[in-house]
Design a protein around this nucleic acid. Structure first.
Length: 252
DNA sequence: AATACAATCAACCGCGTAAGA
DNA sequence: GTCTTACGCGGTTGATTGTAT
């Protein structure tokens, strides 16, 4: 009794998409909009599973897809975001307008992964993190959709919020980004969800973090962040919100 | 020119999660 | 509260293209 397949395989086309299939899918989505992927094959007449349609649209057919080589600036950003976020390609892609998670993942696996070696944490640093943080945060390996537990904060108008906080480039994926959700009329605001906690955990292992974010007095910590705190208190603290815009570059 | 190997990238797969019944 | 369905994600595969021998 294995997992039920996402769709019936019989009679469906597989492999590379033909120009005709691309045209049918594009026309359908332009007419009816994205979403309801499962019903697209049935209603458009495509012999593809909905999942395949979604992937084709997101990775290839979307009008805002940026073609061409990754620029050095983009490469640098990918490296820094990967350092901060790990293999969360959709989050990284959300900061690179016109680039897809699949493209970035491929680029990393084929090019950057060889160039960049994961910086090793010293045992001392790991121990510091262990001794410092006492929380119920569960480290996830996958990004989550975020529809609840969202905190909206006003961005600092003077801070250059791009790319980490969204540059407002019109990239459709930004508003679906799990960690930076915007809702309704709050277009000028930013959402932070609890997935930021794990990023924070990583950053907290860096002594520089504690120089930039002087939480020591607020949370009863010593200068190296030693003590006991609830990570959510830290994540959503005024100090974090205040400093984030001003110092984000230090962590990218 | 032919073959082998490497690199690239589109597509597939299975899992975790949210939403609705 | 439980079950089902659909979506979105990261990991992996395999076809294609490029390069070396």
């Amino acid at each position: 009794m294995g997992r039920r397949p996402c769709c019936e395989k019989e009679g469906l086309n597989r492999g590379a998409w033909t120009p005709l299939e691309d045209e049918i899918l594009s026309n359908y989505i332009l007419a009816h909009g994205e979403g309801r992927w499962r019903s697209i094959p049935r209603e458009s007449g495509l012999k593809r599973c909905g999942k395949s349609c979604r992937l084709r649209w997101l990775n290839y057919l979307r009008p805002d897809i940026k073609r061409g080589n990754i620029t050095p600036e983009e490469e640098d950003l990918i490296i820094r975001l990967h350092n901060l976020l790990g293999n969360r390609w959709s989050l990284i892609a959300g900061r690179l307008p016109g680039r897809t998670d699949n493209e970035i993942k491929n680029y990393w696996n084929t090019t950057l992964g060889k160039k960049v070696k994961e910086p090793k944490r010293s045992g001392k640093m790991k121990a510091a993190v262990k001794a410092t943080v006492h929380s119920d945060v569960v480290i996830r390996t996958k990004a989550m959709r975020c529809t609840q537990q969202v905190v909206l904060v006003d961005p600092h108008p003077e801070a250059a919020c791009a790319p980490m906080l969204g540059s407002g480039t019109g990239n459709g994926r930004e508003e679906g980004s799990p960690s930076m959700a915007s809702k309704g009329d709050d277009s000028g605001k930013l959402g932070l969800d609890s997935s930021m906690s794990e990023l924070l955990l990583k950053d907290m292992s860096d002594p520089e973090f504690w120089k930039i974010y002087p939480f020591s007095s607020e949370f009863n910590l010593d200068g190296n962040g030693h003590g006991s705190l609830n990570i959510d208190d830290l994540l959503y603290s005024e100090e974090m919100m205040k400093n984030w815009g001003n110092h984000q570059d230090d962590f990218l």
